[in-house]
Design a protein around this nucleic acid. Structure first.
Lengths: 195, 195
DNA sequence: GACTAAAAATGAAGCAGATCAAGAAAAGAA
DNA sequence: TTCTTTTCTTGATCTGCTTCATTTTTAGTC
């Protein structure tokens, strides 16, 4: 049962009572997505947010000049959505695409509101993950402001070594704010050094 | 009474009962900070977070090569802290300096935990501001990834026209991820165009 | 109002990283 | 296995932005 994975994840942060756990489970429905399929697209509202059970996703936008920019990746036990679209229930600006055949658990926006209203503990859980997300993005912004392209790549490699193999290089480059070509050069320089 | 300003702010998001309002008020203490004084410094834990009643602050770091990078500004009705230090109660990496003579209301970390535990509504409030903060930083990261230095400045000007006068230009430049000189050139180009 | 210190402006030179173009390698599909 | 498409690599050239050095302007202080 895939809901166990979600409950385990939640219980890292808070302890749910029996009924709360049941309530949570009843609000999430399983969805399977094949590689290259989309979970969300610009102009459509993100009526759901998704918890990744298995697989990997990329959240990105395409600018007028055709350039591709990655805002986020998500693998097992991460959440994925166009968060601005979800939070404000406005049309999305981002694509969310599956990088592998994936399974997610989805909750509908209004169901989430009900959950948070019904249980102080669940409210606490959502507060905690929002705060952690915010702290994470602060670190990211600061690191991006203060480091070169190469240092950003090194840092990513250090923090998410397992991630790198699962993500196409052009996507990683655009996440780190550099061109595919430049990331290719950085990598090439490193492998030459090592050997 | 300055606590009214805080309560009004909170009640934009949730409705507090009489006792909850009193409880909140009892947890915040007023602190005055003169221009150029520090609210926080690297290596010290942010034991408090601050709600700005009056004045302006800048949150920044200085890299080994002496460069100054601004993570955040805060004016009236904004929160200010080294959020990673506050959330995890770890030593800070950021300076927080007053850009003007300022007044803040401070809450101690453990008091905030108690507040959130004591009241579902207050928990909801903190969840909401964390979510809004997260959505904001997502927009910021995406905009930074997808736009040139000049466009980033234009966007800031558009969204925070009143802010620009209160913030030194070198600080704004470092917030927007460009050198002071380059921002100067951008501005100069614009004023020449207009006249 | 004169003096001092901090911030902003300006020119010249340099560079990190982008762009363009073309080929090589890898992954999917039939 | 072959064919097709996508991804990655590599070289050549270009540019947005930085850095450095100096001057001008603004703000703060006695």
């Amino acid at each position: 049962m895939n809901h166990k994975q979600l409950l385990d994840y939640i219980q890292n942060f808070v302890s749910l009572k029996e009924e709360e756990a049941k309530l949570v489970v009843s609000c999430f429905k399983e969805v399977k997505v094949k590689k290259r399929q989309f979970l969300a697209q610009p102009n459509f509202i993100n009526t759901h947010r998704s918890f990744v059970i298995k697989g990997a996703f990329r959240t990105y936008t395409i600018t007028d000049d055709g350039q591709d920019h990655t805002l986020q990746f998500a693998i097992e036990n991460w959440w994925v959505s166009d968060f601005n679209s979800y939070l404000y229930q406005h049309p999305a600006t981002l694509f969310i695409v599956a990088l592998e055949d994936s399974t997610v658990l989805q909750i509908e926006y209004h169901k989430e509101q009900e959950l948070k209203k019904a249980s102080h503990t669940i409210e606490t859980f959502f507060r905690i993950i929002a705060e952690k997300g915010l702290a994470f993005e602060h670190r990211r912004i600061l690191f991006n402001l203060t480091h070169s392209a190469e240092a950003r790549y090194d840092n990513f490699l250090l923090n998410y070594p397992n991630f790198v193999q699962r993500v196409p290089q052009y996507a990683l480059a655009s996440y780190l704010g550099m061109s595919t070509e430049f990331l290719s050069r950085i990598r090439n320089k490193k492998t030459r050094k090592k050997s």
